[in-house]
Amino acid sequence: MFFAQLKNELWKLFGKKRTYIGFGAFVLAQAVMLLMFKYTHWQSRLEQLLAQNGYLAADYISALTVALVMLWPQIALLMPLYVTLVGGDMVAKEVEDGTLRMILSRPISRLRLLLVKWLAGVVFAAVLVLALGVIALGFARLYFPWTGMFVFPQPNSTFGLFPPDQGLVLYIFSHLFMVVNAVTLLSLAFMFSCFNMKPAAATILALSFLFVNVVIQHIPFFEEYQNWFITHHLECWYWVFQQPVQWPQILQSVLTLLAASATAFLIGAMGFQVRDIKS
């Protein structure tokens, strides 16, 4: 029964045109990034940077390098927007449309209903991130060779250079952590969605929470308190490209994000349990 209910939630999610419009927007953004990289000064500047450091551009301007470049604006902008949009819709939209009243006239507990909905959201987030990773790499491979990977420098670190096999493994790992990011963002919006508010309000609240986190995180006073900010932990996907890889730090962030997701779910479930569902 549980899996039948989960399957049905996925039907609802993937049966909507909007889901594919969102995917389409991502693919379009990737294509734009690819073209910008290829046809603006971006590529030549990267070639210069590599040459200044004694590397051959041909060895590192590759499908893997460009795929990662293509992902950046999506991770920073599109993914939070889209995932919180879907998360904000999951409960609040059903209340707004009246379908939740139909569901709650049936003998399913509210907690179980939320659990299948949230799990469907988790599946959606995973499919979204993994599909984007594959599509980005596929697009980039159309125009760029399969050679080494260049990764732009991170704070307190130099740029990274990896052979193609290692680059691919790190690319895959980074996407696994990105799935955790997406689940956290979705859970945040899902939590607000469980309370009595419009779907858009749930999305806006989740995005506002992230925005406030980013702003406070970057105030110098809070430099020593980075671990308290969820947006700091959301960067963990990129830390896999540091050499050597700081696995304990990444693991700590992943666990923090998973705990934040579970907490958001529980708060949402408690709010949903006590609220009255009216037409």
Binding site: T99, P107, I108
Partner: peptide
């Protein structure tokens, strides 16, 4: 209220599964 983008039959399957197979 139904999931308008899905078929009538799919709606029935979805809603009935909240009770029993």
């Amino acid at each position: 209220a139904f999931y308008d983008y899905l078929s009538g039959r799919r709606n029935l399957e979805i809603l009935s599964h909240y009770t029993a197979p």
